[in-house]
Structures are given as C-alpha cells and as structure tokens.
Amino acid sequence: MASKEEVFLEKVSSKFEVEGKIQRERRIWLSTDKVNLIPLCTWLKGEGFIHLSALSVTDWLEEGKYEVTYHLWSYEDRILVTVKTKIDRENPVIDSVVSLWDANAQAHEREMHELFGIKFEGNPNLTPLFLENWEGPPPFRKDFNWREYVKEKYYHKDDDTERVYYD
C-alpha cells in the first residue's frame, strides 16, 4: 500500500511540473519554477495546507540564484511540504503569497525583503521591519562584507583602542 506521502506526490506531480522528493516520513520537498509557484500554492492551500509556517531564502552565490522556500503544513494530512523556487539573484522579483496566507506571509516577506532585497510583487507593505535608517546593501547577501562595513561605520583608525581592528 502506498504511503500518504507517495499518494500526495503522485497527485501533485500529475497536476504540476514539479520535482518532488520524499525527504522522510511526513516531509516532502517540491522544486518548481517561478511561473508555477502561485498556481501550485493556490492548489496546495485548497488541499488543506493552510499554515505557512516559514518563508526563507537561501543565497546561492556561485550559481547567481536566490532560493525562496515555503514551508507549508497541513493539519489534516499531517505533512510538511517544502516548496522551493529559484529566482535570479541580480533582479530578485517574485509574486507575493500574501493573497493566499495573508498576515502569515506578510511579515515573512517583509523581513526577506529587507534582508535579501527580494521584491515581492503584490505585497502592500514592504517597509523595513528591523533595520531602521539602513544605508548599506541587504545584509544577508553573501557578498556583503559586514566586517568591512562595521569598520567603516563604527570604528576610527586614529583611535588607539580601536586600531587593533585594522591590523
């Protein structure tokens, strides 16, 4: 007898172009393209995945891509589905899922916007969440050299006690 994970994967593969993988019991990974994201998420929500437990971003520097990850939980099936989408790093634009998960997605997208500079199209409020008066680049980008930034912003080379940071 097929497990509930296999049944679910079969169902989602027949409807969408996804690369699915059963990670382990109750954990499924789905990789998809940017264009399929919103239809897939809409369908998933209809299937009972009403809880967006986290939205995270991975910076693949060598590849030049951001990977946006949505963790979705279904209370009925008791499965955690992880939807992954890769987008261009230099021009990071992706459709917002606020229309689906509402306030649940709002804060996450706002945070990812400030930390990675990703533009979520359709999100009404992407003002900074933690960083006020921030002038540097998005700080969680891997090519952001924060040690250099800190030296420039906070320390003085002519101060005796702080010269150690420059040696």
Partner: peptide, 13 residues
C-alpha cells in the same frame, strides 16, 4: 560592542 564587535546593526560605543 562586546561579543557583537563585528555586528553590522549594533552600536559599538
């Protein structure tokens, strides 16, 4: 800054 001497978002002195 203590152990956060190289943090980009905290005040050092």
């Amino acid at each position: 800054g203590g152990m956060y001497w190289d943090s980009y978002n905290t005040v050092k002195r």
